[in-house]
Design a protein around this nucleic acid. Sequence first.
DNA 1: TCCGCTAATCTTGTATGGTAGATGCATTCT
DNA 2: AGAATGCATCTACCATACAAGATTAGCGGA
Lengths: 212, 212
Amino acid sequence: MALRVVGALRDDIVTMALKPGDVISESDIAGRYGVSRQPVREAFIRLAQQGLLLIRPKRATVVKKISPEGVRQSRFIRESIEVEIIRRVASHPGEAKAVLGELIAEQEAASNANDSRRFHTLDELFHRTLARLAGVEYAWQLIDDHKMQLDRVRYLTLGVSSSQVAISEHKAIAAAVADGDVAGAEAAMRSHLARAEVLLTQTIDDHPDYFE
Amino acid sequence: MALRVVGALRDDIVTMALKPGDVISESDIAGRYGVSRQPVREAFIRLAQQGLLLIRPKRATVVKKISPEGVRQSRFIRESIEVEIIRRVASHPGEAKAVLGELIAEQEAASNANDSRRFHTLDELFHRTLARLAGVEYAWQLIDDHKMQLDRVRYLTLGVSSSQVAISEHKAIAAAVADGDVAGAEAAMRSHLARAEVLLTQTIDDHPDYFE
DNA sequence: TCCGCTAATCTTGTATGGTAGATGCATTCT
DNA sequence: AGAATGCATCTACCATACAAGATTAGCGGA
């Protein structure tokens, strides 16, 4: 039961159904889901450790506001790891060319069909596949945890998804990998990830009350 | 109270007072610390999320065995981030030379005094300082979480600490940073971190029952 | 002797009652 | 009227009791 509450709350937070700054008491959520306070409390602890909630003892529990500095450093972590991944893959391409090419084709299909949700899934799969090809799929789970912060930002900018740009960048990455061009692949990956920077500053301007 | 239990248990696990595979029920720990089961339970949840415990519902809670694959990928994560850090620092040395030099001097003092515990602290401080100089101190917290797995291995190999080797490697890193030699600093950092690899394989041979 | 079933006894999970602390409002005193 | 103080009412925290599943020991039968 506790795990169900965790999942439900995490979804609500990432999709902005629960907005940064909202206060959610144990009793409140417990009543809403028809369970006791105990499972809710444990769910709060898990989510607090993931950086989504802020438990203020004897005071209240609030949905953590997005920390621009935290997002910046999450990007740093992600870029560090993904750069290292792309180096490894480019050094030993192996089956990379075929696998990546197929994924990009699916992305183009989703983009042409204007299915932004599926494109988002495929985009994530593209990066996770690179991790798998590098033999460090577990490391992606780490990125995934920290990506939740970025996902909250991304959700605020839905619709402006310039999927065409992303696809062309994916192509550049895949091409460099196929050629075994390590430096080129690294550069392509860096510029691909750098695009999120402008999204952040723009989002802060649009929703200043969601940030601290 | 719960936080105190978390700290105590984490120390016991990292220092191998609680060995991988040991079963520790909530009631057991609760009685040992003179508290109720509830705070202990919450401590278990936190430690399980950090990968130190494995909660098997309705069965038992055990100290997680060390996963060689997990250690390997933790090393990958650490190397990825620390390489990126050292690049940034080497690109903009600033006050790095003075600060690092002072730290290394303290390390030599600790090494000459055979104070391995203090050396360990200074070694960790060296790397955290690099993160601070790169402006990503928060990222170090992430490494710190994953470093617990490595620390368990390290604790098994205490005494063999070749602190002299570590110091010379630190010097090589600091020298490259002071010269603004980005590639050299990266190479020095990689070889410094690579030393842990042999420790792992050796430790697995010495204590096979601690690993999965 | 060996196999199988049952029941006692572990474990974690959940529900509920009570406690201490923090906040905000209302009342009271200056 | 303004400010300070006391109180009602929130909150998360802890302790206890109960529930449900899993393991194991012991007993009985073949």
